[in-house]
Write a protein that binds this DNA or RNA. Structure first.
Lengths: 264, 264
DNA sequence: GGGGCGAGTCCCGCTGAACGGGACGCGGCC
DNA sequence: GGCCGCGTCCCGTTCAGCGGGACTCGCCCC
């Protein structure tokens, strides 16, 4: 009826179900069926029926009158190749960097024009950053994003308008290019309160065995409490170590990966 | 037609789609459409149509003629509450235990009668265990499983038949109860090559602020190379530290969780 | 070189699963 | 008491999903 802009889910059952599941990405914790109706503007009975289905198959779990993503989703999510191999190789080194500095340390990859945080070790003190594992953030306003963009060549399409988050956010295309040049020369990217006021960060790119950039190691904290200009070497070191491990591991790990490729 | 035992997916589109997604849990990496047809015994055209749908909404990604779970699944999986809060609290301490011992260190929770591995730090040397983050394993044949079972009271239903993995696997119900008593007294559980020959482990339970068991911290390695009887204190210490952090954090974290409960 | 096989793609008529408007009951709040 | 929002259930309609099957394209083996 109303030609309303359906978020994107089209009219298939799978699309609608995915719309529902997506609601749980940001909203930590559980949601009531009524909240889902509001957020998706799907008809009430559709949501209730669908949610019951999702519980039956294990994608959602029921918690009183609320619903939450099921452990099955975690299991499948851990099997996603784009993150699995990288995290496997990186986790140990990220932990080391974290323990050596006690700062917030993370790993992020680029998806579209946004970074997705694959791993995150939080500093003990300091305010809990809103960033969390599995979270997204626009690439132009993050150290990790800039670190990856700088080495991505022209394969990434920059959106027409770059949203502003603080007064320091880079929203001009030319300015962004200048910044990326700088990152390319230095090998590290800085976030100077461009995403969140009072929060700064450093990031360095991680490369695959073929030389293509895969992700970025980052470190962040409260301006004044963390000195990013003294941390860049540490971040770069960790990023390079991971890159080397990936190159070394290829010869060992890949055969195993290839082995059980097929069904039956 | 053939009354074949449909795995469980029933006849809804969501059920079928979930059946497809589940295929990616164990089979690391990507699968071809044909492999999916074989594994699910769904009609060819159904699989092809459905897989195209799943790609459209982002649950799968296409990789040549193969398909792999999409990064979206990782994002939603990270939002699963059952694992999120626990991992947040545990990660730092697991990393410490790992760095202190250089052994394989993990965190697992119980789902049904199986443990699901939430986190896993791998030892540098030693054979790569088949266990991986997001993986499942029957509870009676794992140190973590026994550690959680021992403190779960009678809330968990023990299956009629306990599958055997090695000659040491506990497959007798009475014997399992004796073992769980022992675990309850000691506060730690041991895996004496009960899951995989030559592999041993220790695990200790993690408790929530209300005293209910939530998960288990575990350590494992090759028999002879790791001395589990000398590691149990370390594992218990880490488990207790996490339990305490959870209790402390409740007052801080919960308000935030409650806050944005609702939509709109 | 030809023919068999398994892969991926496309088509299309049929049908019942999904759809969604709406009635109902419950509980909390004004 | 009356209103409102929530969860549940019902049921007639219809169109999205279904799946058999035809087609093509490589590849391998005879």
């Amino acid at each position: 009826m109303s030609p309303a802009h359906r978020s994107e889910g089209e009219i298939t059952a799978i699309g609608r179900a995915t719309d529902l599941l997506k609601q749980f990405r940001e909203s930590r914790g559980s949601l009531s069926a009524a909240a889902l109706v509001r957020r998706t503007d799907l008809p009430k009975s559709t949501v209730y029926r669908m949610v019951a289905d999702l519980v039956r198959v294990g994608l959602l779990e029921r918690d009183g009158d609320d619903y939450r993503p099921g452990i099955l989703l975690f299991e499948i999510g851990e099997a996603v190749p784009r993150q699995r191999d990288l995290r496997d190789a990186a986790k140990r080194h990220l932990a080391t960097l974290h323990q050596a500095t006690l700062e917030n340390v993370g790993l992020a990859l680029l998806d579209g024009f946004e970074v997705v945080h694959l791993e995150m070790f939080r500093g003990r003190e300091g305010p809990r950053l809103p960033q969390h594992t599995g979270g997204r953030w626009p690439a132009h306003a993050s150290a990790s994003g800039k670190a990856v963009l700088a080495f991505s060549g022209d394969t990434v399409e920059v959106p027409a308008v770059l949203p502003r988050f603080t007064e320091r956010t880079i929203v001009d295309h030319a300015e962004l290019q200048v910044e990326l040049d700088r990152v390319r020369r230095r090998g590290v990217a800085f976030d100077r309160q461009e995403a969140i006021a009072m929060i700064v960060g450093v990031a360095a790119p991680v490369f695959g065995p073929d030389g293509a950039v895969l992700a970025a190691v980052s470190m962040s904290g409260v301006a004044g409490r963390i000195d990013t200009s003294r941390m860049d070497a540490a971040v770069r070191t960790t990023a390079l170590t991971i890159s080397q491990d990936l190159a070394d591991a290829r010869s060992v790990v890949r055969p195993v990966l290839q082995a059980r490729r097929d069904g039956r």
